[in-house]
Design a protein around this nucleic acid. Sequence first.
DNA 1: TATGAATGAGATTTCATTCAT
DNA 2: TATGAATGAAATCTCATTCAT
Lengths: 189, 189, 189, 189
Amino acid sequence: MKKYSEKETRILNAASEMFTSRPFHKVLLSDVAGAASVGKGTLYLYFKNKEELYFAVLFREFSILVEQLSEKIKQDNLNPAEKLTTIIKCLTKRLFVKATNVELLGNVVSCPKSEEWKEKRVELWTLIESVIVQGVEQGYFEDSNPRLTAQYIPGFIRSVSIFPPENIDCETIQKHACEFVLKSIKIEK
Amino acid sequence: MKKYSEKETRILNAASEMFTSRPFHKVLLSDVAGAASVGKGTLYLYFKNKEELYFAVLFREFSILVEQLSEKIKQDNLNPAEKLTTIIKCLTKRLFVKATNVELLGNVVSCPKSEEWKEKRVELWTLIESVIVQGVEQGYFEDSNPRLTAQYIPGFIRSVSIFPPENIDCETIQKHACEFVLKSIKIEK
Amino acid sequence: MKKYSEKETRILNAASEMFTSRPFHKVLLSDVAGAASVGKGTLYLYFKNKEELYFAVLFREFSILVEQLSEKIKQDNLNPAEKLTTIIKCLTKRLFVKATNVELLGNVVSCPKSEEWKEKRVELWTLIESVIVQGVEQGYFEDSNPRLTAQYIPGFIRSVSIFPPENIDCETIQKHACEFVLKSIKIEK
Amino acid sequence: MKKYSEKETRILNAASEMFTSRPFHKVLLSDVAGAASVGKGTLYLYFKNKEELYFAVLFREFSILVEQLSEKIKQDNLNPAEKLTTIIKCLTKRLFVKATNVELLGNVVSCPKSEEWKEKRVELWTLIESVIVQGVEQGYFEDSNPRLTAQYIPGFIRSVSIFPPENIDCETIQKHACEFVLKSIKIEK
DNA sequence: TATGAATGAGATTTCATTCAT
DNA sequence: TATGAATGAAATCTCATTCAT
């Protein structure tokens, strides 16, 4: 995991807050600086420009998520279905609380650093995919394209997290989402 | 469906083109005006400001999509599974072709005319939901919360459309996505 | 007196209302047109541009005022002091009710038509001046420069009309203003 | 007196120059910035918008005027008539030299920071009024409403300053104006 | 390293004026 | 004569970025 200095962390936290709640062009760097309690010029000591700061935010959020998931499914006493359940619950919880544009490229496209970020994204998908593949290999699951399924999962969770149906709680969503995926790929015995 | 004048249509088309190919803040209204062959001031006769123009573009595209889906599943000779297949294929095709326009699925969060949007979004979800409910009633499907499933569908299609795995074609995604959903909710007989 | 068509009058009335209550650059021709219930283009049938409309307003207001005063002091049974009193009372009343920028060139300077308006302005001053001169000739008044005095009068009345001291009525101002002028130029006998 | 930073002063000077020589809507902020040798954006660090800059210019000029007058009449060796003479001469000179700036006498009506203005205006009137009252108390003057008279004075001076009669010099106006006022309120002994 | 005043390119927006109907 | 949609020049204003301190 990349290490961030204390000041860098403060900036990233502030920027994350902002980019999460407004579109790119409505986030003012002066506000970010203010919220991070640093001077505007200081931002430029740590990030080349606004776009790079944006990608740095996405990168960090993603890294933390991947790290967490990675930790959770390392426990060997879990079978693939349990691992997948863990992943889905974790993602749901995370997105439900902070429906960030975590996996959204948003409106900013061409950026040199975006490569680095793309890799992180792929890391998440590969992580989920590997669990599915493991399940397939062990005869639990059946899936003609585990990579696609792996991408579906954060995507559909995100959609209900941003606009949750009224009067629904996180647990209900978690349960339904797990069922939805498992019924689709699990082999009935 | 809302009616647009000839000039409005020309502006919306030009703007759609622009907003689809560049981030919001890199789209210049003077370019939009130029592409639509109207004066810059004319834009302001039809749209209060840049933001409203942006949302008008998205709203029109979204409305057309909902309209199309609605038309397609009206055909009574289709059973619920066929209807759902139609919806998924249609969504996938549309997003796959015009993937940059990611907001298209109604995931527009902070929008001035939010009510109008919310209604359209609900319209899409309700449309999909109704097909699922119909399937449940007719004994084809089993789903403890069809509304959630209805929201999943555009969500996960969107996620593979934005970042399609390499070397995959639209048909493969369509097929896999249909399978993914149907295996999850279809009752095996 | 210049004659105005019915439509011209409507436009001038609307414009007068606007120019009186806002600075030149805050008066929109579309508002004037709206208030006059004519099309925006129609304004240009009667007035070459915004500046000319502005001057036309001033010209008309001035003409009316001069006309009125002129009528009032034609009565031959009035002596110069009575005539001056009449003028001051009339001006005060008029300005008190409608503290228009009647004699204010405002911020708009170079305009061909402004010559015409200048003449009207001079007409008012000359009118007042003539009464003073008459008084001097008849031994009532003493004034080393009646033209200056003539210009003072509308000027100082305007200043108290725009910002009247609290709790003062028009009559009190009228009375005080008359005294102020007459004590200054009347010869004590 | 409000303090202005060096840069603020440079901007105000440049703006004063511009607003004095052209109508409001013909003054370009880019020109002001250029003349003050600052960036266009710098103007906005010191003044919220064009209007506020405009009023800041007027306010500063007006404040200086009031300040100057205030200083001049503090000299105790002057009797009320001499003080009034000083005031009138000073006002006349100032307006005669810089006549275009007609708003200067506090006749600014619709202004955002209206309270601040009102106070300054009242300050000027009270200053003049106090001299008259002093004269009345010392038996030099007679005036049934010194406040009204105090308001007349800047008002009538303004009117001859904007449109001075042809071929007249400042001294003539000064002399006549003083006579005009003193003859009106002075008690003949 | 840290700052935030200053910048100015370039964005959005306005509105007097035109002109086809 | 009357209109008001259309115009686009030109205005105001923003904000990412720089740089002297």
